[in-house]
Design a binder for these strands. Structure first.
Lengths: 196, 196
DNA sequence: GCAAAACATGAACCATGAATCATGTTTCAT
DNA sequence: ATGAAACATGATTCATGGTTCATGTTTTGC
């Protein structure tokens, strides 16, 4: 029984995966507190005890999901940055990719945000890591003269916050069809600022 | 026993207030799930049953705090906008006031954010109301030619998101002394944008 | 001063649901 | 083929803590 490790057999790996996917669903829909182990195992079509072969607690499954989801978000956003367009245009694409991703997998947003309360360390880790990468990109763009000089760390957090709020308002609560328009407006703000 | 109403006697009003302040502390420190009624009443120096004279459930105390805190934040930020300075400068002052407020009463931030999970309706209400006010200010500024034309709603949510993220990173996790510098940097971004 | 309403108490009740464990079944290396 | 390790089961256990309630005490209006 590998507690922190991965399962040894094909069957084991499949079970663990089933449980994780069911947990993602249930945590996403009900939130951590209201999510019950019995509901998770019901959807995973296993016995309750089975879950404890692969995870040592309810918190541990949750943490695993946060890590997984963080990795996924970073992948989605980073992949969108590729094109050889302007640095700022690339950032625009990253924001668009993020918002569409939130709209497609709303459980992601909820789980990561709830981590602030369920597992503060994982939450902080996730955003700090993300911010560092963002900061590095901004610094590089600055060095290349593609953006005005300024504190890259503050900018990274400000822009991340923007993305989170827009994701909540438009991708989660609003009409997904609006997203592209929102991205245009938001990036106009980031590019030119508010001053006339 | 006034269930939704306010207490009739001076003593009653004082008790209710003691309980609310204790609840603010405990919810802020421990989060909703880990906060126990017994700990709240211990700090309020009353019996557990007393709490149920004034609130019909744990959720109801929490909701009351969200409403109260929302009102307080709006007051603090709005008060900071008074001066007859430039509209943009006034906004800068609002951001500064918000960040200092978060640093002073971190429980506020936590409770309001946790409301997303404990009481989604109250959470959404709170931010939608706030956004509407922000939007109106931006529209007015736009009409007066003090900011470039653009979608005021998107801008309001983007700027709110910025404030939340900066609050989390610098007012909650960072050194409060940094706040004024952060405000300057962030508002430079908002004013002039990233483009060189 | 006195009834009635409001307020206060804290031990006991009770639902909930996470975690365990004794008992099987399946997989895999040799 | 076979034994050992890995995996699977689900009813039972157990701690937790929100809520209730029977019994006082205090305040208020008249």
């Amino acid at each position: 029984m590998p507690k922190g490790d991965l399962p040894k057999t094909r069957r084991g790996r499949a079970r663990r995966e089933q449980i994780l996917r069911a947990a993602e669903e249930v945590f996403g829909e009900a939130g951590f507190a209201a999510a019950s182990i019995s509901e998770i195992t019901r959807r995973a079509e296993t016995a309750q005890g089975t879950l404890y072969i692969y995870f040592k607690s309810k918190e541990e499954i949750f943490r695993e999901l946060v890590v997984e989801m963080g990795h996924l978000t970073r992948t989605v956003v980073t992949r969108a940055l590729d094109p050889g367009a302007t640095r700022l245009e690339a950032e625009r694409a990253g924001l668009a990719a993020f918002l569409h991703f939130v709209a497609e997998r709303p459980a992601l947003y909820r789980i990561v945000e709830e981590a602030r309360f369920v597992d503060p360390a994982a939450y902080r880790d996730y955003f700090t890591t993300f911010a560092k990468a963002y900061e590095a990109r901004l610094k590089k763009a600055q060095a290349d003269g593609e953006v005005r000089p300024g504190d890259a760390e503050v900018r990274a957090w400000a822009l991340m916050g923007m993305a989170k709020a827009l994701g909540e308002r438009y991708a989660l609560w609003g009409d997904p069809a609006e997203i592209d328009g929102v991205v245009d407006e938001a990036f106009a703000l980031v590019r030119e600022g508010l001053a006339p």
